[in-house]
């Protein structure tokens, strides 16, 4: 047995299958600027889970087999637009719903994806944003932060009339 055809650590998936799932993951959540690595990690996490959840493993296996039959090819070689159409036609299946939710769950928790999108994650360790731009938006004027002293209409239309004007109760004790 060579290293290339050795089953992966869960004993059930093979590299070809991983490549197919990566193609599906990218079709579900296409980010052209992202390399394969985050998709690969996403698929590995899904397969790790499937390795201890037989129902999930069966669901993925059966779904992949059906997709291969429908496309007549290894899914890694099917053009993205065709894969998209194949998935759209299966949007109501449990296979699709399960794969979609698992891919989204893991992909958007991947720090390489965060970095690509521009989400920095934890901030406390860096002192928060008090001195790092929590208020650095400059394309709009600085708004009022205090409450307005204008009368507040509690019942009726926004137009203030003597009948509907009820000064907002505010305690500044």
């Amino acid at each position: 047995m060579t290293s290339d055809d050795r089953p992966s650590r869960d004993g059930r998936s093979d590299p070809g299958e991983v490549a197919e799932l990566v193609s599906l993951a990218r079709t579900l959540y296409p980010h052209p600027g992202l390399p394969d690595a985050p998709y690969q990690r996403t698929v590995e996490q899904i397969l790790a889970r499937a390795s201890v959840e037989p129902a999930l493993w069966h669901l993925l296996r059966d779904g992949l087999t059906e997709l291969r039959l429908a496309s007549g090819a290894h899914l890694g070689e099917v053009p993205a637009t065709d894969l998209h159409d194949l998935l759209t036609a299966r949007e109501e299946t449990r296979f699709f719903a399960t794969l979609r939710d698992l891919v989204a769950w893991h992909l958007y928790d991947d720090h390489e994806v965060w970095a690509a999108v521009g989400y920095p994650g934890a901030s406390f360790e860096h002192g928060g944003y008090r001195d790092r731009g929590f208020n650095d938006l400059a394309w709009l004027p600085e708004p009022r932060i205090e409450e307005s002293d204008a009368p507040f209409v509690e019942i009726g239309s926004l137009t203030v009339t003597p009948e509907n004007a009820a000064a907002q109760t505010r305690s500044n004790a």
Binding site: Y129, G133, F134, N135, D136, L137, L140, P141, E142, P143, R144, I145, E146, E147, S148, A150, F152, L158, Q168, N172
Partner: peptide, 27 residues
């Protein structure tokens, strides 16, 4: 006597949008 929070970026968008829509009671 507790001070108001300063405006963060998300608030700047909300408050400016509110003002332009004619709303008055934002903070």
């Amino acid at each position: 006597g507790r001070p108001p929070l300063p405006a963060n970026n998300n608030y700047k968008v909300l408050a400016n949008g509110a003002a332009r829509l004619g709303y008055e009671h934002y903070a």
